[in-house]
Structures are given as structure tokens and as C-alpha cells.
Design a protein around this nucleic acid. Structure first.
Length: 570
RNA sequence: CGGGGCGUAGCGCAGACUGGUUAGCGCACCUGCCUUGGGAGCAGGGGGUCGGUGGUUCAAAUCCACUCGCCCCGACCA
């Protein structure tokens, strides 16, 4: 295409107060504009990128036998009421009424609708398995949209759903998706990990996330470089070592005004690892005392899965429930339920609050001095050891670009999506759901591939493959050569992308500096530069955007050289 | 939802503390000339009534109140 007929509003300066690299560069390079918080307009270049990603998604989904369909965005409330999510999901769901006063909502995901259509149409095991997918808009009234297109209120999602006769079938559909996702993200040129994840309210079965590491990411993931263990911090396990046994007699010690573990540890001259941190939490049913080793942190997600919704007690509640000021709470002689983290060992002596202002107990032996439910509620941290191979783990920030969930019968039972098996017995369909956010893929690609001049697209999602830059269109010869190369390269079949080369010709009457700056900004993988300098020797210049590597090639060999250059770049 | 910050031309900013000419600068934009290997130069020109509402005042971009919007941190993120 010709630059002069494309709308690419690049900017010299960007709006103040924006931080995320992908956000800045997509605005600056004219890919997107923002309508309101969490609502984005994709301009021609941005839309081309999304379509490149979507093509890859479609190809890989078709390869595993998934069939593309399209579902409404506007949903009747009844279906969501049947699965209960109408009630469990709160402000995040956009709700409205139609003219007859019927409750409706805007789809934030499509498990309900998919299970509904399955319930109507799937009658027999002979019709299974099925995988249906769509690439379509989702709406979520996010509490806080952020980082440009990373978290928006309206976004496109590739969501697919599998329907199987049993767990074994689900396993297979799940694996097919995992493999397809690996191909997709590899083709997109992303660095990524497949990590264990928290199924959340999607279901209680297996789930994984595909995470693209970048400092702009919202999630923390735990990685073991030795054995490949990878998990979202929300579920990550890790190993820590226990300190040496120090024998202490059980006694009260005076610790005036020393409340935090650190203060008491310093005051008594004992390492924090010999402390039991006692935290009072309140659930709907009861208050619970939660214990963890002094130097460790609670993983609130793990605790949530164990005890359900809870809040940490306020200082007032602490006094009200335990008659003890926060900071002096401990497990000994405690009447309420206790949950202890596995970082606390049965046969070591510990120090913890004495349930009395300004006093701590030392010499607490868990096996002797209190009863507790033991569980892993500890947050993994940098430097802990891998739960599989005991090598040190590290923590990285990452963008969630995809996820896969085993749903089982969570949606099919409430919606009565059942089939008759070989024996004529009625069984619920076993379901899985699988998502990829194309805009996040694009944002992650930018976060992982940029330099001080702009975006450096991976070839597979660049809006164009080649950009041809005649430096002076007033010079007839330059323009003519540029046009010729443009025509010829456009006709070449691009076997990498399985389509013809897509070429951008910067035919604008702009000075060279402007064209160079814009070309680097928008990040097309290969630049072909045609100027008087090279023409004196009958040569043109080809340049890789990523490495800035350039090559002068004779005009009569230009086409071959350009294509070779394209194929050898990544 | 809690905490913080910011709203003046398309973008970046000054003016505000201490109320008072016609609200200014750079970039971008339009016209002409000139220039053509890293966001050129010269000349001329268009565009805002200062997020909104109400108040104080002879007088409000400026002071006060309310409100809306956006950004950042946190909670949340199905």
C-alpha cells in the first residue's frame, strides 16, 4: 500500500502521564487512539496487526479441528442466572434491561452461551467431541483499566470451548489446545512460559496460563530454569530450608512496644526464622488465627482457596475477638481455629505473641503447645527452591496472553447439557474453555521488542513485511525505481507467511529524516532505502529494522536480495 | 473501592502562588518560496476562551465549593 493513502498519524510527542512502553509506542506510531478509559480505537496499522494475529489463531485452531462460529455479545440474564454467575459476578458485569424490562448483560466470556447451545443441539455421544471457537468482543467493567491495551473494558478474545464425553476426551482437547497455543505463540515470535495457574471461579480442575515475560506484566510467575517448573505466584509452591534447632525453655519474655517480628527479633537478638507470625483473619463463619514463619509472607490466594472469602482483622477487631493487641497475638492457649503454614516445623522452638500486651512467648514447640490445621499458604519468593528439583527459583513479571481451563461439568450440569452414551445412559457433557487475547499478544510483542527509535515487530505480526522508502519523490528516477521494486516485491509469494508479500511504499513528499523516523517508529521488519547516494553506484540499501544491519545491493539484483534479507531476519 | 496526581489549541507546556491589556510559547496544521540520507529553513496564516456547574468579586484560566474525566499505586481482575 501507499503511505500517502494510509492513515498513520504518528506523533512527535506523546500524551503526558503514560508509562507502558506498548501504550506509548502504539499511540506514537499511530496504531491506536484512546476513546475513554479502557476503550481503544484500532487505526489501520493496529487493525492490520490484530488481523495478522487473528489469522495465526484461526489457522492453528482449524488445525486442531476447531470450528469458527460467532455468538451474540448481548445475553439474556436467565442463562447466567442458571449457572449462578449472574449473582457471583459483581460490578464487573455490564448489565442492562431491554425495552420490555428483561434483564440482559454484555458478555464477558461465553461459557454460558456455549453450554446453552450445546444443551440444545448435542443429543448423542456420536456428535462428540466438538471444539467451537470465535474471535469476538468481550466486555468487562474493569475496576481499573490500565497500561493501554493490556487491560481494557472492551477487548477482542479468541475463545474456544471443547465438549467431550468424558475426562479422557477432555484431556485430549486440553492437550490439543496447549499444543496449538505453543505453536501460536511461537509463530508470533513471543517469549513465553506455560505456567500452572489458579482456575479461579472458572472451575476447580486443571488450568494453565501462557505468560509473556516483560516488566510491564501484571502477573508474577515463578520459574525454575533447571527443571522448567513454572507457575503463577498465586499457586506456586516452593521449598525453603528450616533453621538449626535452638532449644528454648517455654517462658514469657517482656517485649515492651515491640510488635513486628523484625522489632522483636532485633530486641531479643534471635533470627526472624525462629518466629511465628500470627495473623487474625475473619471469614463469614468464624475468626481464624493464621500462622506463618516470621520471615515469610502469606499467599492470600492460597488462603482464599482454603478458607473462602476473608479479611485481615483490624486492630479493633483483634482486641474485640482475642482481647489482645495486634503484635502480641500468638497460638498458645488460643481458643479459635488455627491454620499453620508448613514453613513452621513441629520440632523446632519458636517465639510468638503471648496474647498479652508487651509480652511474647519463647520456646513454643508446635507439636506440644498448640493444635492447628497445617497447609501451604506461603508465598513463594525469589531465592526459594524449586518444589521439583530444589534448584533456586526466580520470579518474573509477565503478561497473561492465553489460558486454558478444564471446566468439567461446571456449566453443563446447570444448563442441562447432556447426551446419551453408547449404553443409552444420560451424561453431562464435559467442557473446557480456552482463551487468547490478540491485543495482549500485540502489546506483549512490543514490550519484548522495541528500542529507542520505536517498535520492532516480529515478522509474523508486522502490519507490513517490507517498507520501501524513496528518499526524494521529486526525483523521478528514485520514484520510478521505488515503484518498480514495490510492484515486483508485492507479487512475490511469501512462504513464511503463506501469502503474498505486503509492501508499504512511503510515497509521501517528505524529507528523508521524517521518513526514517516514521519507518523506525512503526517497525516494519525490512526497510528498502532508495536515494541519490546509492543510485550514483546503481545501488539501493536494504536494512533490518531489528539490528539496523544494512546492505547495499545493485538495483538489478534488488528483488532477490530484498527477499533473501527478509527471510534471514527474524 | 482506598491513596496520589493532572485537566489551558491536535500534542507538549507557560500563565495560577500575588484576580486586572487582545490567554502565550514550541511542535503539528494551511499558503508560498526553498530544501532532499536522520523529525530542515524563511515569510505569511488558521485554530483555544482555559474540563463542567455554581459561588465570591467592579473584574476569575487564576480564589472557593461541588462535579466530571484521565493517569499512576493498591484492592479487584471469572
Amino acid at each position: 500500500m501507499r503511505y500517502s493513502s494510509l492513515f498513520i498519524p504518528t506523533m512527535r510527542e506523546i500524551p503526558a502521564g503514560i508509562n507502558a512502553v506498548s501504550h506509548i509506542l502504539m499511540l506514537k506510531a499511530g496504531y491506536v487512539r484512546q476513546l475513554a478509559a479502557g476503550l481503544f480505537i484500532f487505526l489501520p496499522l493496529g487493525w492490520r496487526v490484530l488481523n495478522k494475529i487473528n489469522s495465526i489463531l484461526k489457522e492453528e485452531m482449524e488445525k486442531i479441528g476447531a470450528q469458527e462460529i460467532s455468538m451474540p455479545i448481548l445475553h439474556p440474564a436467565e442463562i447466567w442466572q442458571q449457572t449462578g454467575r449472574w449473582y457471583t459476578i459483581k460490578e464487573e458485569m455490564f448489565r442492562l434491561k431491554d425495552r420490555n424490562g428483561r434483564d440482559m448483560c454484555l458478555g464477558m466470556t461465553h461459557e454460558e452461551i456455549m453450554a446453552w447451545i450445546a444443551s440444545k443441539e448435542i443429543k448423542s455421544y456420536r456428535q462428540l467431541p466438538q471444539i467451537w471457537y470465535q474471535i469476538q468482543t468481550k466486555l468487562r467493567d474493569e475496576a481499573r483499566p490500565r497500561a493501554g491495551i493490556l487491560r481494557t473494558r472492551e477487548f477482542i478474545m479468541k475463545d474456544s470451548y471443547s465438549f467431550d464425553i468424558d475426562e479422557k476426551g477432555l484431556d485430549k482437547s486440553y492437550k490439543l489446545h496447549a499444543e496449538a497455543y505453543h505453536k501460536i505463540f511461537t509463530r508470533c515470535g513471543l517469549k513465553y512460559y506455560q505456567v500452572e495457574s489458579d482456575p479461579g471461579i472458572m472451575g476447580d480442575l486443571e488450568s494453565h496460563e501462557f505468560m509473556a515475560p516483560t516488566p510491564a506484566g501484571e502477573d508474577d510467575i515463578v520459574i525454575c530454569d533447571n527443571c522448567g517448573y513454572a507457575a503463577n505466584i498465586e499457586v506456586a509452591k516452593s521449598v525453603i530450608h528450616s533453621p538449626e534447632l535452638i532449644v528454648m525453655d517455654l517462658k514469657e519474655v517482656y517485649t515492651p512496644d515491640k510488635k513486628t517480628v523484625r522489632e522483636v527479633a532485633e530486641f531479643l537478638g534471635v533470627d526472624e526464622r525462629y518466629f511465628i507470625k500470627s495473623l487474625l483473619v475473619i471469614t463469614e463463619q468464624e475468626p481464624i488465627l493464621v500462622l506463618i514463619r516470621g520471615d515469610q509472607e502469606i499467599n492470600e490466594k492460597k488462603l482464599l482457596r482454603l478458607i473462602g472469602e476473608f479479611n485481615f482483622a483490624t486492630p479493633e477487631e483483634s482486641i474485640q475477638i482475642l482481647s489482645t493487641e495486634m503484635g502480641f497475638i500468638g497460638p498458645v492457649n488460643q481458643k479459635i481455629k488455627i491454620i499453620a503454614d508448613l514453613s513452621i516445623i513441629d520440632n523446632l522452638y519458636y517465639i510468638s505473641g503471648a496474647n498479652k500486651k508487651d509480652y511474647h512467648f519463647q520456646g513454643i514447640l508446635p507439636s506440644r503447645d498448640f493444635k492447628a490445621q497445617w497447609a501451604d499458604i506461603r508465598k513463594a519468593k525469589e531465592g526459594d527452591f524449586c518444589p521439583k528439583c530444589e534448584s533456586p527459583i526466580r520470579i518474573e513479571k509477565a503478561i497473561e496472553v492465553g489460558n486454558i481451563f478444564k471446566l468439567g461439568t461446571k456449566y453443563t450440569v446447570p444448563l442441562n447439557a447432556v447426551f446419551l452414551d453408547k449404553d443409552g445412559k444420560e451424561k453431562p457433557i464435559i467442557m473446557g474453555s480456552y482463551g487468547i487475547g490478540p491485543a495482549r499478544v500485540a502489546a506483549a510483542a512490543i514490550e519484548q521488542n522495541y528500542d529507542e527509535d520505536g517498535i520492532v515487530w516480529p515478522k509474523s505480526m508486522a502490519p507490513f513485511d517490507i517498507e520501501i522508502i524513496p528518499l526524494n519523490v521529486a526525483n523521478k528516477k528514485i520514484l520510478r525505481i521505488a515503484e518498480e521494486i514495490y510492484e515486483k516485491v508485492s507479487e512475490i509469494y511469501n512462504s513464511f507467511a503463506d501469502r503474498h508479500m505486503e509492501v508499504l511504499l512511503d510515497d509521501r513528499d517528505e524529507r528523508p529524516g521524517v521518513k526514517f523516523k516514521d519507518a523506525d517508529l512503526i517497525g516494519i521488519p525490512i526497510q528498502v532505502i532508495i536515494g541519490e547516494k546509492g543510485l550514483k553506484e546503481n545501488k539501493i540499501e536494504i536494512k533490518k529494522r531489528r539490528t539496523k544491519e544494512t546492505k547495499l545491493v545493485p538495483i538489478n539484483k534488488a528483488i532477490v536480495e530484498i527477499v533473501n534479507f527478509y527471510y534471514e531476519t527474524y
